[in-house]
Amino acid sequence: MVLVKQKTPGSESPGGPEVVGRDALLAALESDTASDRRSAARELAAFPETAPALCDRLAVEQSPSVRAAILMSLIRIGSPEAAGRLAEFLRSDDATLRNGAMEALQEMPDALEGHVDRLLADGDSDVRIFAVNILSAVRLRSAPAWLARVIRSDSHVNVCAAAVDGLAEIGGVEMLDDLADLRRRFAGDDFMEFAIDTASLRIRGR
């Protein structure tokens, strides 16, 4: 028999969960070893007040796995403060960080809600697009109405296009008129006409 059964791996290591204080975890978050930062980030989810520190680390963290752990802890903390700090990353030049923050915000509907108005009014059209993308995926009953407001009031074609895309899945029949108005506003734009027709068809269901 070549297959061998070993002792259960790692069973010789200390079994019980080590109680490490919050400050020690915060220190470990700056460790040179990615796996230490990862486990510190994970355990800091138990301390909601560390959300700003987690975000500070996220801003400079290069390891994808540590970033993932930090984002997961921020989702679990799920506070409006954490959401607010995450929303700042929508401005980042780093596409991976930006999209990681968007995905995390999609998972924290209650914490997100208070920030939506501000994000949709941002002077940077890309930030508004990201806000619309978040609203298109989040489980928030008010999301369709927000997207409808975007297509009524935002003048930027790509922001409106993103909202139309979201409405293709979550829009209601009461938004068909807004979509028709939008189509008139962007008459002649191949993509917008196509997208609006597609969304309207999906909302009507036929």
Binding site: N133, A161, A162, D165, F191, F194, A195, T198
Partner: peptide, 13 residues
């Protein structure tokens, strides 16, 4: 592309 209308548009064109 993560946008459904975008993908369908590219496809049709």
């Amino acid at each position: 592309d993560d946008g459904i209308t975008m993908r369908l548009y590219y496809r049709s064109v």
